[in-house]
C-alpha cells in the first residue's frame, strides 16, 4: 500500500500570533515555523502503518514557498520515504490545495491520503473533504483510530454522542484528529538520512492547476483587548456592579 501524507508549514503552535500593522495578514518574519500539528499526527499514523507492514511507501507532500522543504524534511526524518514540493509564492486556499493534491494523486496513485483535519493557521477544515469530493473517493474525517483491512479502512471518529466508526473502501481520504496518536521525536541520525531521501519539486503549472485565490481577505486584526477583572469585597458590591455597571442582571 502506498500512502500520501500532506504536511503544511505553519506558524508554530506556541508562538503568540500578531496581526501585521497594515491589516494584510499575520506577522511571519522572525517567527518560528513548524509542521501543522495535525499533519504531524498524519505522518506518524502513516509511519505506524508502515511499521506494521501495512504500508510499503510513504510520500510526504507540501505546497507553498521553497521553505516548505524544511517541513517535508521533517516528515522524511520521521520516516516518510520521499517528498514532493509543489512550489508557489501564491497564497494557497483550500480549493487550490485540494486540486493540486488531486493532480498529484492522479500521478502517484496512492491507496490512502492522510491529512490533518485542519491547519492551525487558517483553521479552514476543508482540504480533506474537497479532495475526497474531487477524487470521488470516500472520506473518514476527524480520525481518532485508523484500522486498515483488505481493501478497506475503518475510521473511528469522536462525535458528540461518543465514537462513530465508518468503513471506507480504498482508495480513501482520512483526516486526523488530535487523539489519533502521539507523534514521535525526530532522531538525529534520521535527519541525516532524510537529507539523502529524494524530494521532487513541481510548479502548479506543471500539474495544470489554476491556484489563483477565490477568496479575498479584507482585513486581519487583533481581537479587542479584554478589560482586566476586579475583585469585590462583598456580595452586595458584586450585585450592584452586575446590575449597574455590567447590566447583566
Amino acid at each position: 500500500m502506498k500512502i500520501l501524507v500532506a504536511v503544511k508549514r505553519v506558524v508554530d503552535y506556541n508562538v503568540k500570533v500578531r496581526a501585521k500593522a497594515d491589516g494584510s495578514g499575520v506577522e511571519t518574519t522572525n517567527v518560528k515555523m513548524s509542521m501543522n500539528p495535525f499533519d504531524e499526527i498524519a505522518v506518524e499514523e502513516a509511519i505506524r502503518l508502515q511499521e506494521a507492514g501495512t504500508a510499503k511507501e510513504i510520500v510526504a507532500i507540501s505546497l507553498g514557498i521553497a521553505a516548505c522543504q524544511d517541513t517535508i524534511r521533517t516528515a522524511l526524518a520521521m520516516g516518510a520515504d520521499r517528498g514532493i514540493l509543489v512550489e508557489t509564492e501564491v497564497e494557497l486556499q483550500p480549493l487550490a490545495v485540494a486540486k493540486l493534491l488531486q493532480a498529484v494523486v492522479d500521478q502517484e496513485k496512492p491507496d490512502l491520503v492522510i491529512l490533518g483535519k485542519q491547519a492551525i493557521d487558517d483553521d479552514a477544515n476543508q482540504t480533506g473533504q474537497m479532495l475526497a469530493a474531487l477524487l470521488g473517493w470516500p472520506q473518514g474525517t476527524f480520525a481518532s483510530k485508523v484500522e486498515v483491512g483488505a481493501g478497506t479502512v475503518n475510521v473511528t471518529r469522536e462525535v458528540d454522542g461518543g465514537l462513530e466508526t465508518v468503513a471506507l473502501k480504498l482508495p480513501a481520504v482520512v483526516t486526523t484528529d488530535l487523539r489519533l496518536n502521539e507523534p514521535r521525536f525526530v532522531k538525529l541520525p534520521n535527519i541525516m538520512k532524510a537529507k539523502k531521501k529524494p524530494l521532487a519539486v513541481f510548479k502548479p503549472a506543471d500539474l495544470g492547476v489554476d491556484v489563483a485565490p477565490r477568496l479575498i481577505t479584507l482585513k486581519v486584526q487583533e481581537p479587542p483587548k479584554r478589560q482586566a477583572g476586579i475583585k469585590v469585597d462583598s456580595v452586595a458590591t458584586l450585585v450592584d456592579k452586575l446590575h449597574n455597571e455590567a447590566h447583566a442582571i
Partner: peptide, 11 residues
C-alpha cells in the same frame, strides 16, 4: 542515540 525538537511544542 538522540533526538532534536522540530517545534516549540516538542521543546
Amino acid at each position: 542515540d538522540g533526538v532534536i525538537s522540530q517545534s516549540e511544542s516538542q521543546v
